[in-house]
Amino acid sequence: MSTTASDASSAPWPEDPLATLAALPGVPDAVDSVRKAVDRVYGHRVMRRRGGEVTSEAALRAARGSAALSGADWALEEVRRRSDFGSDAEARTVGAALRLNAEAGQLLSIWSQSPLRVLARLHLVAAGGAGVSDRTVGRPRLAGEPVVEAPGSDLAASGPAVSGAGALLPDGALPEGAPAAGPWAEAPLPGADEVAARLDGLARLVIATSAAPALVTAAVVHGELLALRPFGSYNGLVARAAERIVLIGSGLDPKSICPAEVGHAELGRAAYAAAFDGYLTGTPEGMATWIAHCGRAVELGVRESTAVCEALQRGAA
Rank of each mutant, 00 (worst) to 15 (best):
Met1Asn: 02
Asp7Tyr: 11
Ala8Cys: 07
Glu15Val: 06
Glu15Phe: 02
Thr20Glu: 15
Leu21Ser: 03
Ala22Phe: 02
Pro25Gly: 04
Pro28Cys: 11
Pro28His: 13
Val31Ser: 06
Arg35Gly: 11
Lys36His: 12
Gly43His: 02
Gly43Val: 02
Gly43Ala: 15
His44Arg: 04
His44Ile: 12
Arg48His: 08
Arg50Ala: 03
Ser56Tyr: 06
Ala58Cys: 08
Ala59Lys: 11
Arg61Val: 05
Ala63Asn: 06
Gly65Trp: 08
Gly65Asp: 12
Ala67Asn: 11
Ala67Leu: 03
Ala72Leu: 01
Ala72Met: 01
Asp73Ser: 12
Asp73Tyr: 02
Leu76Tyr: 14
Glu77Ile: 14
Ser83Asn: 10
Ser83Thr: 15
Ser87Asn: 06
Ala89Ile: 04
Ala89Phe: 06
Gly95Val: 06
Arg99Gln: 11
Glu103Gln: 14
Gly105Asn: 09
Gly105Cys: 06
Leu107Val: 06
Leu108Gln: 04
Ser109His: 10
Trp111Glu: 01
Ser112Phe: 12
Ser114Ala: 15
Leu116Thr: 13
Leu116Phe: 12
Leu119Gly: 04
Leu119Asp: 02
Leu124Gly: 13
Val125Trp: 05
Gly129Gln: 09
Ala130His: 03
Ser133Glu: 05
Arg135Lys: 13
Thr136Glu: 12
Ala143Tyr: 14
Ala150Arg: 13
Gly152Tyr: 07
Gly152Met: 08
Leu155Val: 07
Leu155Glu: 05
Ala156Pro: 00
Gly159Thr: 04
Pro160Cys: 13
Val162Leu: 15
Gly164Phe: 00
Ala167Leu: 15
Glu176Cys: 09
Gly177Trp: 10
Gly182Leu: 03
Gly182Met: 02
Pro188His: 14
Leu189Val: 00
Pro190Tyr: 08
Gly191Trp: 02
Ala196Gly: 03
Ala203Trp: 09
Thr209Met: 01
Ala214Cys: 03
Ala214Val: 01
Thr217Gln: 02
Gly223Phe: 14
Glu224Gly: 02
Glu224Gln: 14
Ala227Lys: 04
Phe231Gly: 08
Gly232Cys: 14
Gly236Leu: 08
Leu237Ser: 10
Ala239Trp: 00
Arg240Val: 06
Ala242Ile: 11
Glu243Met: 12
Arg244Asn: 11
Ile245Gln: 03
Ile245Tyr: 05
Ser250Asn: 07
Cys258Pro: 05
Pro259Tyr: 03
Val262Cys: 00
His264Trp: 07
Ala265Val: 00
Ala271Cys: 07
Ala273Thr: 15
Ala274Val: 12
Asp277Thr: 13
Gly278Asp: 15
Leu280Asp: 06
Gly282Trp: 10
Glu285Ile: 10
Trp290Cys: 01
Ile291Gln: 00
Gly295Asn: 07
Arg303Asn: 13
Glu304Lys: 03
Glu304Asp: 15
Ala307Asp: 12
Ala307Asn: 10
Val308His: 01
Glu310Thr: 00
Gln313Ile: 00
Ala317Cys: 04
